[in-house]
Design a protein around this nucleic acid. Structure first.
Lengths: 128, 128
DNA sequence: GTCCTACTTCAAGTCGGCTTGAGGTCAAGT
DNA sequence: ACTTGACCTCAAGCCGACTTGAAGTAGGAC
C-alpha cells in the first residue's frame, strides 16, 4: 500500500474523479483522508487504488452502500467473507448474461435479419 | 415473434415488471402496445422478450436512452450497426473487469491477508 | 343499476448519486 | 498588503428511473 501523501488536486488529476465526488465519498465513508493540513485533505496514494476498486464495483452494479459494506475505507475486504462470496456469485450471473449479450450485439451488428428476436442466437440472451 | 395479445396484467404477472414501469417504458418509447381496448393497453406476447432484453441491457449498465437507440420498440436492432458493435466492445471491457473482480472477490473471501490491496491477485482488477 | 376490479391519466414525490453555488480559509507570489 | 488559486463547508439543486396518489373509466357479476 502506497503511503505517499498527496493532495486532493493530485488525486483528481491521477484518478479523473472530481473533487466533489471525493468529498462525497469521504462523507459516505468509502474513502478516508489520512489527515488535514489546515482545512485541506491529505490522502495517501493508496486512495487511487481504492477509487479504481470503487469504479469497478460501480460498473458491476453495486451501490455505494454495498461497496461500503464490502470494503472498509482502507481498501481491505470487510470481515464478511460470506457476503463477498455471494457477490462473486451475483457477478457470475451478470457476467454470463453480459457475455451472451455481447455476442449477440456483434451478431446483431452483422446480421441483416429484420426479425432479430426470432433468431436463436439472440434468444439465448433472454433465457427464452 | 409471438403475436398473441395479452393485457397489461398478464405482462406484469409474466415479466415481473410493475405496470407503472410498463407505462413509463411505453411513454419513453422502449416498448409499444399494439392497440387500445377502450383505455386499456393491449400488448403482444413479444413484449415479454423486449422486457427481458431491456433488463439485460440495464444490467449491462446501459441507460434507457441508449437502449432506445440500440433497439426499436419492436425489439429489432436499430439500423445503427456501428453503434451495436461499439457497445459490444464496451461490454467486452466491462466483462473483463467483472471477471477479474469476481475472481478477486472469491480470493478475498478465502484469503485472510489483511493487506488485500497488496495482493497481486487483487491488483490485477484495478489495472495497476 | 350498482359494485367490483382492472385498468386509465397526470402531477408530484422518492431515491441514489452526485454537482453546483455562495461564501469562507489559507499559503504563496508580487 | 493584496491578489490569486486551490482548497474548504453547507445547503440546495439536478438527473435518471421509477413510484405513488388522486381522480376517473370501462366491462362484467350479481
Amino acid at each position: 500500500m502506497d503511503k505517499t501523501e498527496i493532495g486532493i488536486g493530485e488525486v483528481v488529476r491521477r484518478s479523473g474523479v472530481p473533487a466533489s465526488t471525493l468529498r462525497y465519498y469521504e462523507e459516505r465513508g468509502l474513502i478516508a483522508s489520512v489527515r488535514r493540513q489546515g482545512l485541506t485533505r491529505v490522502f495517501t496514494a493508496a486512495v487511487l487504488e481504492q477509487l479504481a476498486l470503487i469504479a469497478v464495483c460501480r460498473t458491476a452494479g453495486f451501490s455505494l452502500d454495498e461497496i461500503t459494506l464490502m470494503f472498509s475505507p482502507d481498501g481491505s475486504p470487510s470481515p464478511n467473507r460470506a457476503m463477498l462470496a455471494a457477490k462473486a456469485d451475483e457477478l457470475d450471473v451478470t457476467i454470463q448474461k453480459l457475455a451472451l449479450m455481447r455476442d449477440d450485439l456483434r451478431h446483431a451488428a452483422a446480421c441483416p435479419a429484420p426479425t432479430h428476436l426470432e433468431c436463436p442466437t439472440f434468444r439465448r440472451v433472454l433465457g427464452l
